[in-house]
Simulated scan of single mutants.
Amino acid sequence: MTGFLRNCWYMAGWSNEVGDAGLVREILGQRLFLYRLESGAPAAILDRCPHRFAPLSLGTREGDLVVCGYHGLKFGPDGRCVHNPFGQKIPAGTTIPAFAAAERHDAIWLWGGDPAQADEGLIPDFAFIPDTPQQRSVRGYTLMKANYEYGTDNLMDLSHIEWVHKGSFAGDGVIFAGQHSVRQDGDTLHSDWWMPNIKPPMVAQGLVPEGQTVDHWLRMRWNAPASMRLDVGACPHGRDEAEGFDIPQAHILTPASAHETHYFWTASRNHDLASVEADQYMLDLFRQAFDVEDKPMIEAAYANVRGNLDAGGDFWAERPVSLGIDQGGTRARRLLESLIAREAAAHG
């Protein structure tokens, strides 16, 4: 896991992805097998038997044990081999990597470092994801062929909406009429846009009578390594924000490897909560935005520098030009670098 922050939580998948058969997913450059114990709690081990390297996901389950489908070695959720069908002795070198796993906010999370140091209190707060009587979320998944920090750049700089999302969210230049600010609270970053006294954008239409204006905001929260919450809101111009609406979204990036990223996302609404048609409309809109608009641009931009990165360069060696509005992504990169360096120093 060289180059990745270890002592933090990575989202591995949605809760409903880890059913009876389990889930195989590459995370931090390793192929992992996620499954559920008899208690229903999640577990995660390397999907590779140390004997002849067969995927353990192709085996069977015996209670909380995973039985290799090739030669019958049995492994516990802590990665230890507990049974050798060819004798009593367990050969040396049979323990495989295991990861601390937790279920929170309808998602499965993995701790990237020593399982003994895993602290569930550090899982970022996405409590809004599960449905409530007042709010409903649709959710999705996108695999991007780009390093996850390039996805962070995109999400922490929402000015790209006006250019990239012309088929979905573009707002006729309203972002450029606003004010951008970046602030840091401990190890949490906030990249916010405030757009006062503007014509109601698509998300706020119907909030005020025709001809009146609104105050509109986009507020992005970032926690390392790349878990982001976006609040999209508006209220009648000059009024208290509580008189309008504030709807959260989740944008959570997990590195599959140095060159691929799992992008988990949600979009919430507070109207038509039982409407299947509203669900489908939102899914279609966000898939257009992420799969058709964001994904090709991010992948193409990353492809333009990947050769240099593979040759030992880094993002900063490419001499990226700063436009000011990209300070959210820049500061997220710097903060992540400092956290990784701090971790490396603590481990000598």
Rank of each mutant, 00 (worst) to 15 (best):
L5I: 00
R6P: 00
R6C: 01
C8S: 12
C8L: 03
W9S: 04
M11I: 10
M11T: 07
G13V: 07
E17F: 08
V18N: 13
G22F: 12
V24G: 03
R25T: 04
R25L: 09
R25D: 06
I27E: 01
I27Y: 05
Q30R: 15
R31I: 08
L32V: 05
Y35M: 08
E38N: 15
S39N: 14
L46W: 09
D47C: 06
P50D: 12
H51L: 04
R52C: 07
F53E: 03
F53W: 09
A54F: 11
L58H: 13
T60F: 12
T60N: 13
G63E: 15
V67W: 00
H71C: 05
L73T: 01
P77Y: 08
C81S: 13
V82W: 10
H83D: 14
N84C: 08
Q88M: 04
I90N: 00
I90G: 00
G93A: 13
P97G: 07
P97N: 11
A102I: 00
R104D: 00
R104F: 02
I108W: 07
W109M: 02
G113E: 05
D114N: 15
D114G: 09
Q117M: 12
Q117D: 15
G121F: 10
I123A: 01
D125N: 14
T132V: 00
T132N: 01
